[in-house]
Write a protein that binds this DNA or RNA. Structure first.
Lengths: 361, 361
DNA sequence: TTGAAAGCGCTACCAG
DNA sequence: CTGGTAGCGCTTTCAA
């Protein structure tokens, strides 16, 4: 096979090769085609200022632009207006099943405003967060929705907030210095505790998520608050999960079950994945849920009603949270007076089959 | 309370109010501070061209920039370079549990290149796809990774590909006109069928996902291909799911179970959520899995090993797919010869407890 | 109502 | 190796 033939074969293979170097249609082109000045064309194409023109001119320009397939060059526009039309969202972990409804809520609102979403993931790593913030600042996003804050991040957030409007979602930084919308995790923890106590449990333990995250901290406190007002006893557990995963839930539960003496009759896992891990730990020891130990999860994750047994859990209004936080972000962008307050959305207890009265009271 | 007092109260409330209007440091500022021409400063700050300068000048500029907290204005840079440094990802549905590993894989590669990810969701709606494409084109993303294609979208993709490099992920458009990386769904369907047949099943049915999506179509064909080479019989089912959800799986399974006569002894659900729906349908009729009916799922979704019974399923190398597809996108951006081929990643059968030999052979 | 001109901040090119 | 110059495509004064 000659070189020539090879070349031909290659070319045939690449029959979809396209030349993308063709210059695109610019505003000037449209102006020329419509016989007006670029400035006029610009006005005609801006819905907000289209009525400064003769309807006639305006429509002509628009028609021409339409036919020519004109699209603004967003770089030029952004450079001029110094605003990108993008909203940055920072999450800890896309794989966390409680995120999608939040993202969807945010997206619904943001897209309705013709803005675009820039999503980045920190993996709960502080230096990654800093990097992402840098990127967002460099790209001049109109606002940042931050749902990956840790309790120590106040300083980083403050320095970001100097440059870009910031709204905190899901997790607060502790103080109420920034506009924040979270779930009411203290209430969530209370709900879980009250449910278990009213079932008759007197010896309970928490499987705690990372304690440097406000949402887990809130759950812990709500739960503990109820404990302290009843005759029930919360087991002292000195560990908490490094990440809210199945593995960590299993590890924590195992540690408790390995402790000599009677084990608690109920667990409050700080999320459903950890609850599932606890379920595994029980099974490993031949224990049954809820007969031997009751378990309450958190989040009402997608398949939590299909695990064995279906999980009693705390359901969060995440879609609503996403919508509100996006709306708030838009308000902040628009420069409306932003009171730096924390708004808390109430969760709801969903009782299924992983909780029951203790069998050895 | 006087107006004045109100104003003061308000001000106190807004103590975190910040003035973000302060002009930012520009390249010109840095140049002046370092006593060089802006063009020189530009070179000094570009790692690729930094060695055109005296190390001395370069370092001085860099130090000044560092101290002044200089950040390039990405609009200006993009306008000049006509490239945004962003990669757009189009997905059907962020909530789909098989997506996170793919997104993570993509992100790993893309972030290593200092590019940013723009993520948008179609909800499997054609006009939304068009809108998103428009946005991406307007924003001049460097490339688009499209994992939400339908079998009819060839035209839309082609017109996008004229303007921006496109890489197809997960779902092909049918033909191999574009560089594409998918899972090998035909093989996946085969694996499921062979497993069931070797267990002794002779009367099987598929719970099909949307048939205008290549990945479901592939599963169907792989499964059917095995059926036709054995004595096993595939039930004719004229419906397929409108979306691969628990509800649709339940509906489809119910329709089959409602058909008079003996029911099949095994289902192949086109994904795990549908398999869980089928599980519900069985339970509704007092049937047990796998005793009465075996079920194979698809995807190995997060909690599928924790449902009751744990699901036999097909596991996909999604992280790897994400990484490859991102690498491919980068190659296409770099203008490397892109053979428009389909690459298929092999899945793996995971046998758990939702499948067993039929009890009434 | 429309046109002219300026400039957003950066980089590519050409001279020196 | 460095400086000057021009211009990316758009919007926004200001004048007419």
């Amino acid at each position: 096979m000659s070189l020539h033939q090879v070349a031909r074969a290659c070319k045939a293979l690449h029959h979809t090769f396209v030349d993308r170097s063709s210059a695109r249609v610019t505003l000037k082109d449209i102006a020329r085609l419509a016989g007006v000045h670029p400035a006029t064309a610009s006005r005609a194409l801006d819905p907000a200022r289209g009525d400064m023109l003769t309807p006639e001119t305006r429509d002509r320009v628009r028609r021409v632009a339409q036919e020519a397939g004109y699209q603004v060059n967003s770089f030029a526009r952004s450079l001029r207006k110094n605003s990108s039309g993008m909203v940055g969202v920072v999450v800890a972990d896309v794989a966390n099943p409680f995120l999608p409804p939040i993202l969807r809520g945010i997206e619904q609102i943001i897209r309705a405003e013709q803005k675009l979403l820039l999503i980045a993931e920190t993996h709960d790593d502080g230096s990654t967060l800093l990097e992402i913030i840098d990127h967002f600042v460099a790209r001049r996003v109109d606002a940042v929705i931050l749902s990956a804050a840790h309790l120590g991040d106040e300083h980083a957030v403050a320095s970001l907030a100097e440059k870009i409007p910031v709204v905190l979602a899901v997790r607060s930084v502790g103080s109420a210095r920034f506009p924040t919308i979270t779930h009411d995790d203290v209430l969530g923890g209370q709900l879980a505790a009250e449910h278990l106590v009213s079932l008759g449990h007197r010896d309970l333990a928490q499987l705690r998520g990372p304690m440097d995250v406000s949402s887990f901290r809130g759950r812990e406190q709500g739960f503990a608050a109820v404990m302290s007002t009843t005759t029930a006893l919360e087991r002292f557990v000195d560990q908490s999960a490094t990440a809210p995963t199945v593995e960590e839930g299993r590890r924590l539960a195992k540690a408790i079950l390995d402790t000599p003496g009677r084990h608690p009759t109920a667990f409050f896992a700080h999320n459903d994945l950890m609850a599932v891990g606890a379920l595994e730990a029980l099974r490993d020891r031949g224990l049954t849920c809820p007969r031997d130990i009751s378990i309450v999860g958190y989040n009402d994750a997608p398949l939590s009603n299909h695990v064995n047994p279906p999980l009693t859990t705390v359901r969060l209004p995440s879609l609503e949270l996403g919508r509100r936080v996006a709306t708030l972000a838009l308000a902040v962008i628009a420069g409306s007076p932003t009171e730096p307050t924390i708004e808390k959305l109430p969760p709801e207890l969903v009782i299924r089959q992983s909780t029951a009265a203790p069998s050895h009271p």
